[in-house]
Nucleic acid binder design. Structure first.
Lengths: 245, 245
DNA sequence: GGGCTAGAATTGGTCCGTCCAAATTGGTAG
DNA sequence: CTACCAATTTGGACGGACCAATTCTAGCCC
């Protein structure tokens, strides 16, 4: 596999340093010439890397020196990178991503019921019906949830909602999805919520379906976060033991 | 005022061309050398511009030629630029931005009531109380709405929601805010919704407040969109008349 | 006529060195 | 202590060169 361009690699490293708090908001980044020396590359590659950071909203590049922006001024796209700052995703970030997704799903379901074609409505109902089964593998279950989210966002007929949803799920899909499908959690509450959602969706009851989608997503938030809290706790112990070696 | 760097200007022009549909998804962009010639700049400035487009998710840069991405794969940040593609914002985009915001506000209000400190709760209640008044200037009214949105997103205690909210409102604030405050619309329904929200918020009734925030935001969506639909209709007539000159 | 292959052409990636305008820094004088 | 100025450092931009990867085209074969 071909390696990423220098600008991408440098940009990623600086981005992660910023997200880890290596620089405080307002603080100047190292100069282009210093960075070119540190990474042993031409200044042009550094400039391209900094333009990417600027576009991510993480830095402001101007004569006199580039400065770090406050995180609140960054693009939503930084979230996906916040999930990969350590060996295991930060449970707090997982929590917040799934929580934000709950709002998108609640709205999406409501709009979907107002706008979806009969065919779309049927397909989403079928997804929910399959999710009501109790013998699904964990991988299949997640597959269905991902597809459900995508179809709902799509059927909302709102490009902005689709972009928000994409910004939220891309970090989950490309960074932690594979771990999520490996871990069993108690999904009895989820099953109840899915059933409520399926019924309300079938009956085209917008507010009820929206509320059920929200509750389902909240349950998902809680359970997905617990996975990484447990991971953190166990890796903390490992790390402590290693430090004493 | 100092002008923006070349890479910013070139990036903006190419971005707008892409958003206007000048290139279809998958289609190759002009080569770096061609663009350098077209803009009469050094190839390096073009490369920096393209890196920004790549970071916006609008293009994929690789050997063999840069290609345009489908809009669905873009960053939420492109929305703000979609608002400035013509003299007057596309009412469809305005509609979708306010609609997406309705979901964020509904969720934000709910979380806010779960998490806000007594002080934050008090301040937001005060904002709502002021919004209940009938003698507000339009400018003051919008100021209060903007502040309300920011405080709710802040008090949700969720960084990801804050970033989503920021991604949605920045296009409104920097592109059409000044026009919005100039136009009177019938805000009697809004006043009713604000009162409902204020009561539910004061009483810390999460679901009721969430639903009221949603309804308020839906009303806002409808009214803000009408402003630009009217603008489009009137400018269409003007444009037609000019074409006949 | 279509498919395949090889070579040419074009593409992006990277580098070197240079110069200029804008901002910062440090020293000095009042 | 403050203001000013010169020196230094910063980002912005340029011309040109070279290389690896991809695309395109022409020729050949079935």
């Amino acid at each position: 596999m071909k390696s990423a361009p220098l600008s991408e690699r440098i940009s990623a490293e600086l981005r992660d340093e910023i997200l880890r708090g290596r620089y405080r908001p307002g603080e100047r980044l190292p100069s282009e010439r210093d960075l070119a020396q540190r990474f042993e590359v031409h200044r042009g590659a550094v400039r391209e890397a900094l333009k990417k950071l600027e576009q991510l909203g993480l830095a402001k590049i101007e004569a006199g020196g580039a400065r770090v922006n406050p995180l609140e001024e960054a693009s939503l796209d930084v979230v996906r990178h916040m999930l990969t700052l350590s060996d295991s995703p930060d449970p707090r970030v997982v929590y917040e991503v799934f929580e934000a997704t709950s709002g998108v799903m609640a709205l999406g379901v409501r709009l979907c019921l107002e706008r979806a074609s009969a065919e779309d409505h049927q397909q989403i109902s079928n997804l929910l019906r399959e999710l009501c089964q109790t013998e699904l593998t964990r991988a299949r279950e997640f597959e269905l949830f991902v597809e459900f989210g995508e179809r709902v966002a799509q059927a909302s007929g709102n490009t902005v909602i689709m972009l928000v949803h994409r910004g939220l799920r891309i970090g989950i899909l490309e960074n932690i999805y594979e771990e999520l499908v490996l871990v069993d959690t108690d999904n009895r509450e989820q099953l109840e919520r899915v059933k409520e959602l399926a019924l309300a969706f079938e009956a085209r009851e917008g507010p009820a379906a929206s509320e059920a989608a929200y509750s389902l997503a909240v349950d998902m938030r809680n359970r997905m976060t617990k996975i990484f809290e447990a991971r953190l706790a166990s890796s903390g112990a490992d790390t402590d033991r290693r430090n004493f070696s």
